[in-house]
């Protein structure tokens, strides 16, 4: 588990608040969908900060990609989304995480529940599903504030439209305009009788509420994997 040097190869705007960084990491060992990396930035005077970011790219992809959402007054995200450019470097450790992982070799349906930037690791799972031609019944329920905040909007629309359910919490449209609740979860499915692997990711409050609702609907706690972004 060593710290490697990551170099930014390219950066791509996803939304007004989020960018994807394409990274070159020598001897990158590959990763599983859902895993993340720890990154460490060092200032000129030696001051350091560490943060973790989920890997957005599928294991099958040509390059390692992270999607960073800018947090106002953040310690690290403003640098990554506004200052960092091609050629810039930081340290990276990983991939890490064995609990919040989906592999195409796993059989059974999959329910992905994302709150805002919680979509990032689930996008790696969706991309992995597509790249492997997996026949698993995979569904995404995404909760975002407005259409403009939806990460990977074009890709979701072109590649995953039939698998995807959207609810917006701060915009009226002809779809759902409310927080994820039991009715929405029931309509999205799959139900607990199908024993889906469930992955819930996003802010802590979102994850805990969604997980609670899923268990109340009958899903086994052990089948509901959670990743709280805090």
């Amino acid at each position: 588990m060593t710290w490697r040097v990551a170099t930014i190869r390219e950066s791509r705007v996803e939304t007004p608040q989020a960018k994807t960084l394409v990274l070159d990491v020598p001897d990158w060992p590959g990763h599983l969908a859902g895993q993340h990396v720890d990154i460490r930035l060092t200032a000129e005077d030696g001051y350091q900060s560490e943060r973790s970011y989920s890997i957005a790219s599928a294991p099958d992809a040509a390059a390692l990609e992270l999607t960073i959402e800018r947090i106002d007054d953040g310690e690290v995200s403003p640098w990554l989304t506004e200052e960092a450019r091609e050629g810039d470097q930081f340290e990276l450790r990983g991939p890490v995480g064995g609990y919040f992982v989906w592999k195409a070799s796993l059989s059974g349906p999959v329910l992905l529940v994302a709150g805002g930037s919680g979509l990032v690791p689930l996008m790696a799972m969706l991309r992995h599903h597509r790249a492997t031609g997996s026949q698993a019944d995979m569904r995404l329920l995404l909760s975002a504030r407005t259409h403009e905040d939806v990460l990977y909007r074009r890709e979701l629309d072109s590649s995953f439209r039939d698998m995807m359910y959207l609810t917006l919490t701060r915009e009226e449209w002809d779809g759902w305009s409310r927080r994820v609740d039991a009715d929405i979860l029931r309509e999205v499915g799959p139900g607990p009788e199908e024993h889906p692997h469930v992955y819930v990711c996003g802010p802590t409050a979102f994850v805990e509420e969604a997980a609670r609702l899923l268990v109340e609907l009958g899903h086994l706690p052990a089948a509901v994997h959670t990743e709280r972004f805090g």
Binding site: G97, F100, G230
Partner: peptide, 20 residues
């Protein structure tokens, strides 16, 4: 609070394997 996933790297460094 967050969850144990956030310290996956720290724990793997200490124990040599994923602990999450």
């Amino acid at each position: 609070h967050t969850d144990g996933n956030a310290i996956a790297g720290l724990l793997e460094e200490r124990y040599g394997t994923d602990m999450t």
